[in-house]
Amino acid sequence: MSPFRRPRPAPDQVTGPVGATGGAQAPDAPMIHARGLVKRFGDFTAVNGIDVDVARGESFGFLGPNGAGKSSTMRMIGCVSQPTGGVLRILGMDPRRQGTGIRARLGVCPQQDSLDPELSVKENLVSYARFFGIPRRVAKAKADELLEFVQLTERADSKVEPLSGGMKRRLTIARALVNDPDIVLLDEPTTGLDPQARHLVWERLFRLKQQGVTLVLTTHYMDEAEQLCDRLVVMDGGKIVAEDSPRALIERYSTREVVELRFGAASLEDMAGKLAGLGERIEVLPDRILLYAFDGDEAAEAVTGRGLTPSGTLVRRSTLEDVFLHLTGRTLVD
């Protein structure tokens, strides 16, 4: 049933011997290894010396606001962008010299759809497989298998245009899997999808993860990162500002719980002054005040204990979003 047979030998690619060298790396060697990785465009430094290691079978996320350097990093890992400085090894190979060999073993799901509207759904997969030097008959069988996996079998002969956004994204994910990749790169896999479509994509990606595929993804959806990532880095201004598992990051950069307080028309700055000393940290947003505390209910009681009467009180568990906003600031970079 599973379209993925693993472990399996390095595929025999059009690229020949280059592709084979990486297959010889030690089993515990990192799939992706970066040290002091830099990408500059003229005067602008998009990626400013990052260190990353991704292990086999791991699901790894890059988080950060727009312009943080996530996509530039992904493009370097995808071997469509040359690093300006530092060390980068993918599957033990050097992208500067062995780009084709590396790309033969990657699956890439880009942020913007790039399906061919002149081809049918299935033809999109078959033609893409041909770029990897996969024989036509094998490619067709693989396409059927993958359409099944992304639940598009009944649309195999349909044109691409009438597909919904979620279907197109699933097809793009299927396309990224035609070569049984060692690493799948997903650049904002669910951006722009409605909630149902997002959950379906997540569910399929989770299946991949279970099958031991190494996933590397960028996102700015915190729930997506919490759902899918074993480990993640938060990037800001081209640098890594934090790295760990989602749970550990929350523990380190936030409190266990958060109390959201609303005060109707009252000045929130004044209120914040009156809350001083409660919880571990207080943050004033335009419409509410966040009170970070280990025990939210206790903190909320303390608020009323000071004679303050919020128009709304919500105690919730801390999320990655709190970490993210804490680390990268609240000013919208767009």
């Binding site: 592709g19 995808g78 790309r103 033969a104 890439v108 880009p110 913007q112 790039s114 399906l115 061919d116």
Partner: peptide, 14 residues
Amino acid sequence: WIRTYHAMVATPLR
């Protein structure tokens, strides 16, 4: 528009 060149360059194609 359809960006297929961007998809192709992510494969082993040069």
